[in-house]
């Protein structure tokens, strides 16, 4: 499904601020896998996602989506395959445009944009139904500007937008980190629902170890631009926070007594 082959990304090369954010990084994702990603601040989690999304070119290595080499494909062309939700609720939507207009933009992901109507009546009805499922009351506010929504509402909307055209891969970069616990739980619940309903292959970065354990069927931990833990199947199901802390200690050769140390 997704394959990263020896991907390297260096920021500010040749300066004192040089940072190897992805270090010869390799990873393969199978169809339908829901992978949670953890790791300390600056471990390279977001860099990994941005490399997949093509935000900038990588310095070495290859990225394949469904066997197609997308390493040289620009960000907007890769968007055809990807659904993305960001940490900052401001980043995933166009604030000055209406809810339905944002959805209509997402509906056209992967298709050419022409002089056809930006949104049709039929679509509107579809959006209303999909929004109703979120249970946030957005279905009655189709023309409301997204800038007026709360962070949680915006993240739920961004999730819907990311999956309106079924993506080959869903990328979630700490998409609940900026929300209060109750809202975060709600957005996670919606995430779980959408991923299961559409059988989406998903990469979800989280700063919350419990969430990383509860959700998904595979867990990877990053450190210094490398994968230091990769747990799946039965082992993942039985995983506890203590296990994780212990394994982190083993993998990194350091001892930690609290997950705060890992998760910054």
């Amino acid at each position: 499904m997704l394959e990263l082959r020896n991907v390297t990304k260096v920021f500010n090369p040749g300066t004192v601020n040089e940072k190897i954010a992805l270090d010869n990084f390799s990873m393969t994702l199978e169809d339908g896998e829901f992978v949670t990603v953890i790791g300390g601040n600056g471990a390279g989690k977001s860099t990994m996602m941005n490399a997949i999304a093509g935000v900038w070119p990588v310095d070495a290595g290859q990225i394949l989506i469904d066997g197609e080499d997308v390493t040289k494909l620009s960000e907007h062309k890769r968007a055809k395959y990807l659904g993305r939700v960001f940490q900052d609720p401001m980043m995933g939507t166009a604030a000055t445009m209406g809810i339905e207009e944002n959805l209509a933009l997402a509906k056209r992901r992967g298709y050419g944009r022409t002089l056809r109507a930006g949104i049709t009546k039929k679509e509107r009805e579809d959006y209303r139904q999909r929004l109703a499922i979120l249970g946030l009351g957005l279905e009655d506010r189709l023309t409301t500007k997204v800038g007026l929504l709360s962070g949680g509402q915006r993240q739920a909307l961004t999730l819907l937008m990311a999956t309106l055209q079924k993506p080959k891969l869903l990328l979630l970069d700490e998409h609940t980190a900026a929300l209060d616990p109750k809202t975060a739980a709600k957005v996670l619940e919606i995430t779980e629902y959408i991923v299961n309903k559409d059988h989406l292959t998903t990469l979800m970065i989280t700063h919350n170890m419990k969430d990383a354990i509860v959700h998904g069927n595979r867990l990877i931990m990053l450190m210094d631009g490398r994968i230091i833990l990769d747990i799946r199947g039965e082992e993942k199901k039985k995983l506890t926070v203590e296990d994780l802390l212990h394994k982190f200690g083993e993998a990194s050769g350091e001892e930690f007594t609290s997950d705060k140390a890992i998760l910054g």
């Binding site: 907007h76 968007a79 980043m91 166009a94 997402a106």
Partner: peptide, 12 residues
């Protein structure tokens, strides 16, 4: 409005 979002939605 948000060019990062636009690219994520496949807009050139």
């Amino acid at each position: 409005c948000n060019d990062g979002m636009a690219r994520a939605q496949g807009i050139n």
